[in-house]
Amino acid sequence: MKTLLTTIALSATLALPAAAQDMSAQLKARQGQFRIMALNLGVLGDMVKGATEYDATAAQAAAESLVGISMVHQPTLFAEGSDEMSVDGTRALPAIWENPDDFAAKWAAFGEVAAQMQTAAATGTDAMGPAMGALGGACKSCHETYRAPQ
């Protein structure tokens, strides 16, 4: 009897990781993080495109926000088991957890170009153009490998 109970208890524990866990907090946090990035990029991009007037204070605030976000520790938000195969409501591909070093490197690369934008934002749209291109490259290279289509 005891062995049977132990076996049941054991298989229940072993089976646990296979069942979908509640990841809604992680999904909200990271998707919100990316939305904050997109909004701040919008402020900068609209100035580069000429859709809005260059405003040094606003540009710097946006660039600083990007730099700030680049310091958020990503593994907390990308918890094991929160990929698109395991839970609904996310586009995060399992490849993130197969190549954690590469994913971290791509996040770090975003941090570097965000810092370039911070310098550029103080000087005007001429310097912001190339920085915007570099930022776009950093977003694209991660989405290319690690994000599924909608």
């Binding site: 997109a38 990029l41 919008g42 776009g136 977003c139 694209k140 991660c142 989405h143 290319e144 599924a148």
Partner: peptide, 9 residues
Amino acid sequence: YDSAGGHMA
């Protein structure tokens, strides 16, 4: 200001 991913990149 979302950025393209997948093969579109």
